[in-house]
Design a protein around this nucleic acid. Structure first.
Lengths: 158, 158
DNA sequence: GCTTATTGCGCAATCG
DNA sequence: GCGATTGCGCAATAAG
């Protein structure tokens, strides 16, 4: 992760020329009339800086083709990985979303349970304050011995 | 989103030739002696199928260059978006992870609260049983409110 | 049937 | 020197 100038540098393309002539070795059919510069070690050259690194710069060179092919392979591999990673990340998102929902559901349930228990507590406190034991009137669940059974299904492991 | 054959088809490259000569119009510096095939519509062409769709196939054609340039732009744009999207996805993962942790913490807290309340309840129930209710005669367990309480401290979720 | 968007691929520069 | 990444352009499709 440290490429910025590459853009400019790579734009060497602009002045340069890239010829692609894809034929490793099996040249059974060679329809292309060989339009390669073929000016590697030779003389002239009009390219400004003129690098001329090695003889490997030869497009005809066997070595050049090998290097290219290897690089192409590497590129393909790298891209596959990259794509795979992206996919994995996407999947991770989905998984996390699901887990989130589960957790929220659990929170909801626990909250409800807590609320019920607190209500029970309050009511009981009232009863104590008012009297000692008024007959449980209507709505209120005065039954203290009937509470901890709703959580039976809430222990869904993780 | 449906490419599979493209691989094979695109490998037309293999027999074909791709010449890149990057010079929109601004040819201030033109060190390269123009090594373009220049055999678009003109000459024989040895490419097997030989499509020759239109005159737009001319590499020299002005229109061709324009289309190429536009496509290059589109490509760049598309790739930028793609990259952006990937980044966003990654970020989403981080956010979701954080939220997950928050939720789990909350669950832990609620569970603890619940546990405490339940214990309180139990204790109270016992008191009631002991005091209000006279000890039921006989050895039988007169405690009616005591059946499912072993789980008091065992709110171990996951 | 045009245009733009997306995708696979190869090249070259660069990084590690 | 070598493989891995990355920006870029090309061509074939897909999508609109």
């Amino acid at each position: 992760m440290s490429k910025q100038l590459q853009q400019k540098i790579s734009s060497t393309d602009q002045n340069g020329v890239s010829v692609i002539q894809n034929q490793p070795h099996n040249s059974a059919l060679n329809p292309v009339p060989q339009l390669v510069p073929v000016s590697p070690g030779g003389g002239g050259k009009a390219t400004p800086p003129s690098k001329m690194k090695k003889s490997s710069m030869d497009k005809n060179s066997d070595e050049y083709r090998q290097r290219r092919e290897r690089n192409n392979l590497a590129v393909k591999k790298s891209r596959m990985r990259s794509k795979q990673k992206a996919q994995d990340t996407q999947q991770r998102v989905n998984e996390l979303k699901e887990e989130n929902e589960r957790l929220e559901a659990k929170i909801k349930l626990l909250s409800k349970e807590l609320s019920v228990l607190k209500d029970l507590f309050l009511e009981h406190a009232h009863n104590l304050a008012d009297n000692v034991q008024p007959p449980a009137s209507g709505g209120g669940p005065g039954d203290l011995c009937n509470n901890n059974n709703n959580n039976s299904g809430s222990n869904s492991s993780q």
